[in-house]
Amino acid sequence: MPIKSYRQAINETLFQEMRRDERIVIMGEDIAGGAGTPGIEDAWGGPLGVTAGLVGEFGRGRVLDTPISESGFIGAAAGAALTGLRPVAELMFVDFLGVCFDMIYNQAAKFRYMFGGTGGAPLVIRTTIGAGMRTGAQHSQSLYSIFTHVPGLKCVMPSSAYEAKGLLTQAIRDDDPVIFFEHKMLYDMSEDVPDESYTIPFGEANFAREGDDVTIVALSRMVHIAGQAAEALAKDGIECEIIDPRTTSPLDTDSIIESVEKTGRLVIVDEDTPRCSFATDVAALVADEAFGALKAPIKCVNAPHSPIPFAPELEDMYIPDAAKVEVAVRAALEASK
């Protein structure tokens, strides 16, 4: 099977879906790259190179470079979805959601409900999350918990190239608004990705590793951080089960509970800040529905409750790493001795 990067997998999905369905349009800032400069107009393909080549095949009628106005183009995308198009909008950094939040949570997320089921918004908003790129406090956040909080939105967090293609295909074919969170630090990570189209259903967790001692729930890049910790712990005979929920909304609660019922211990690894986060959500869910299975207190590994530091040394300390996950796993084991 061909090896492709996370970036290539997303790019290929956009090509395949746009060929399949001409109602799909993509829009965002700089997505065609070098706007208005013939000859090099497609040299760039967005700030992270994900949309490269699309304008060449599909033209400017379907690949729309927008003004730097998130409320404008995300609102336009929501409206276009309501009229029957299937827009895929690129919100360059999730940190900019503040500018267009009304269009997402008060408009797109509520159309189906407020129009009595007669009009939905088949809209995908692709955006980037994650620290580690030295891009400072306003371009490095992992604000997926805020979207997970809103009824009417589906929230998708691919952890690898294979996952990205299957989940983005599903997102584009979904009839409701989907926020698709791409992790900046995963774009160059590669693996086998089929050339054919395929979909991964929402609300279906991936068991990224099997183990009997501790359940680790992790998303996006944190799946890999958890994997490093699990490798190290395995040398001491500690077997971790890693569950990647893939989507925070809908959430595959059954798989999480099934695993905790086996291991009796739960560690959640979440790159977002700790208060009212995905981690606290899963912890509450398990405490509520599987309290009897727990042999130890639930441990959450989050970023600290602070803005992301710009100093590289501090930024590295800010991001949950394998050492912190190991400590949490050992603490869970220690507490249940």
Binding site: Y162, G166, P194, E196, S197, Y198, T199, I200, N206, F207, R209, E210
Partner: peptide, 17 residues
């Protein structure tokens, strides 16, 4: 029946067609 066997089978089943 391992995790990997299930995953590989699902990967095949998901492919279009």
């Amino acid at each position: 029946v391992s995790r990997e066997m299930i995953n590989e089978t699902l990967k095949y089943k998901r492919i279009e067609g």
